[in-house]
Computed example of a mutant assay.
Amino acid sequence: MINSPIPAQPPVLTAERLAAALSYTEYRQRIDNLMAVGQTTGENQSPELTAYAKLNIQRMERLDKKAELSPELQEALQALTHDYAWVVITEGWCGDAAQIVPVLEKVAQASQGRIRTHYLLRDENLDLMDHYLTNGGRAIPKLLVLHADTRTEVANWGPRPAEAQDLFLETKAAGATHEEFAEKLHGWYAHNKTRAIQQELLTLVWGL
């Protein structure tokens, strides 16, 4: 779901905070380094979260290698005339992030330098996260689209495509366990092959 901000907003974050954010390579390296010692990102640590993070590494590696942007999205990116900072709030244990973040990075890489990505870990940036709650929850990943020069918000997106969000709400209402929901959600992502993500990002890019 794409949300338009209120006009005349102040900068979303300081230049120093933006500069201190992780690059995609640094984000992936942080996750790999923690996995090497049996941990993941975030304040909470458990064998379950570490297991999720291990699967997520495999999902991101697969998407890094195989995901391809649609011609329509590539064309829209090439038509951009302004520069943007894409701030992504994420964590290594988040299954949705593993399915989405590599696509966000591919979009940025295809923008001919118009889009630069900056990755922030949710639990280290709760003050920022709490401005972008979903139904009162700190759902991630969350994409903040900012003007590169002023760091003011253009739009935001996340935590997942509308179709996946509907699946989440329906499954939750049916009383499914986390494991049951995760199986359905990742099955949906595998079948959809990033099409819904790309279509929503195409709509977002058209609006820039």
Score class of each variant (00 low, 15 high):
residue 1 M to I: 10
residue 3 N to K: 01
residue 3 N to P: 06
residue 4 S to G: 07
residue 5 P to R: 00
residue 5 P to F: 01
residue 7 P to Q: 01
residue 8 A to N: 14
residue 8 A to W: 07
residue 9 Q to Y: 06
residue 10 P to C: 03
residue 21 A to V: 01
residue 23 S to P: 00
residue 30 R to T: 08
residue 31 I to D: 07
residue 32 D to K: 15
residue 33 N to C: 13
residue 34 L to S: 00
residue 38 G to M: 01
residue 39 Q to A: 05
residue 40 T to P: 11
residue 46 S to A: 14
residue 46 S to I: 06
residue 52 Y to S: 14
residue 53 A to Q: 03
residue 54 K to E: 10
residue 58 Q to Y: 12
residue 63 L to E: 11
residue 63 L to M: 15
residue 67 A to L: 12
residue 67 A to W: 13
residue 68 E to L: 08
residue 72 E to G: 13
residue 72 E to L: 06
residue 72 E to W: 04
residue 76 A to D: 05
residue 76 A to F: 01
residue 79 A to I: 06
residue 79 A to F: 08
residue 82 H to G: 02
residue 83 D to L: 02
residue 84 Y to D: 02
residue 85 A to H: 13
residue 90 T to H: 04
residue 90 T to Q: 09
residue 91 E to S: 11
residue 94 C to E: 07
residue 95 G to T: 09
residue 96 D to A: 04
residue 99 Q to F: 01
residue 99 Q to W: 00
residue 100 I to L: 05
residue 100 I to T: 06
residue 101 V to Q: 07
residue 102 P to N: 03
residue 106 K to C: 14
residue 107 V to E: 05
residue 107 V to C: 15
residue 108 A to L: 11
residue 108 A to W: 09
residue 116 R to D: 14
residue 116 R to W: 03
residue 119 Y to K: 01
residue 120 L to F: 11
residue 120 L to V: 07
residue 124 E to R: 04
residue 127 D to Q: 07
residue 127 D to T: 03
residue 127 D to K: 02
residue 128 L to M: 07
residue 128 L to A: 04
residue 129 M to I: 01
residue 130 D to T: 03
residue 130 D to K: 03
residue 131 H to T: 03
residue 133 L to P: 13
residue 133 L to C: 12
residue 136 G to K: 02
residue 137 G to M: 10
residue 139 A to M: 13
residue 141 P to S: 06
residue 152 T to A: 02
residue 152 T to S: 05
residue 153 E to S: 05
residue 153 E to T: 06
residue 153 E to I: 09
residue 153 E to M: 10
residue 155 A to M: 00
residue 161 P to M: 05
residue 162 A to K: 09
residue 163 E to W: 07
residue 166 D to F: 12
residue 166 D to R: 13
residue 166 D to M: 13
residue 168 F to Q: 06
residue 168 F to H: 13
residue 172 K to S: 09
residue 173 A to S: 12
residue 176 A to C: 11
residue 176 A to G: 15
residue 177 T to W: 09
residue 178 H to S: 15
residue 179 E to S: 12
residue 183 E to Y: 09
residue 185 L to P: 10
residue 186 H to T: 12
residue 188 W to E: 04
residue 189 Y to F: 14
residue 191 H to V: 01
residue 192 N to Y: 04
residue 193 K to V: 04
residue 197 I to W: 04
residue 199 Q to K: 10
residue 204 L to P: 01
residue 205 V to F: 00
residue 206 W to D: 09
residue 206 W to P: 10
residue 207 G to N: 15
residue 208 L to S: 03
